[in-house]
């Protein structure tokens, strides 16, 4: 089996988000970059599949050289090799075109795994577009994945208020999330992995042309909350009054 992991490098979840250049750019000053948390679930599942069924695991990232430390981290966790498409991913469609181009040139992948969205731009669409562009089946918000006989797989996805289990076949694109593996199963690199990662191949490819479909013109921070009203714990009637008359939510 061959597995392709689509991975994005994102600001660590504790990052303070600021904008620069007249609020037209994300301020990368002081930002720590990490594997997108939703991708981590896909990565761990990929490792489990590799260990159980034997597979080659390739990690693909669309990004400039600054994503390489995070790519190396994926290699340290256990991916066999990496491919980076050397370009700043400007929007989801553009990124999907790069990924689809790679997949179309390397049709050998049985399973293409990603996180359901990246926590920076929260688009939730790159992997779905890439699936469509490469004519592959696709399941999103995946919280369970098991191999059955031959090419058949059983995939569970989250639906409103529950889950749906689907029987489908490879090749397949999935968008993973929490639940795909248990939290405590998530892998972190160990020393040996880090040493080995240095020697694993990381191929850098040029980007292909793509139409610009959307463009961010400027950023702003969400409006700050007004100051909090403190209510004495022995005066809960005041809270009920505020919720009813001021907030009008009850």
């Amino acid at each position: 089996m061959k597995i392709l992991l689509l991975m994005s490098s994102v600001p660590d979840t504790t990052s303070k988000i600021n904008f620069t250049d007249g609020d037209t750019k994300f301020d990368e000053n002081g930002i720590q970059w990490v594997i997108n948390p939703h991708d981590e679930f896909a990565l761990t599942k990929a490792m489990q599949l590799k260990e159980k069924h034997g597979a080659e695991l390739v990690v693909l990232n669309v990004g400039t050289a600054k994503t390489e430390p995070v790519i190396r981290k994926v290699l340290a966790i256990g991916a066999d090799r990496a491919v980076r498409i050397d370009v700043e991913p400007t929007d989801s469609y553009f990124t999907a075109v790069q990924i689809a181009d790679y997949i179309n040139k390397h049709p050998e992948f049985d399973l293409i795994m990603a996180g359901k969205e990246s926590i920076d731009f929260n688009g939730g669409m790159v992997h779905g577009m890439a699936a469509e562009m490469t004519n592959k089946k696709f399941v999103n918000a995946v919280i369970g994945f098991e191999m059955k006989d031959g090419n058949t797989v059983e995939v569970s996805r989250e639906i409103e208020g529950g889950k749906e289990t689907i029987e489908t076949t490879l090749p397949l694109v999935i968008g993973g999330q929490k639940g795909l593996v248990k939290e405590e199963e998530l892998r972190i690199p160990n020393m040996r992995g880090i040493m080995m990662a240095r020697k694993k191949p990381l191929e850098v490819l040029p980007a292909v042309e793509a139409e610009v479909r959307t463009k961010i013109e400027k950023f702003e921070k969400p409006p700050v909350k007004g100051s909090i009203k403190m209510i004495d714990k022995d005066n809960l009637d005041e809270l009920i009054d505020l919720l009813h008359n001021e907030a009008k939510v009850i």
Binding site: S92, Y93, A96, K116, N122, G123, G124, M125, V126, H127, G128, M129, A131, E132, M133, F138, V139, N140, A141, R157, E158, I159, E160, R213, T214
Partner: peptide, 23 residues
Amino acid sequence: SSNDSIYAGPIIAQYIDAGYVSN
């Protein structure tokens, strides 16, 4: 922004050749 619509979104975008923006 339900699970179903998030799932279908990128497919619809491709079928109708639309620029797609979420959230």
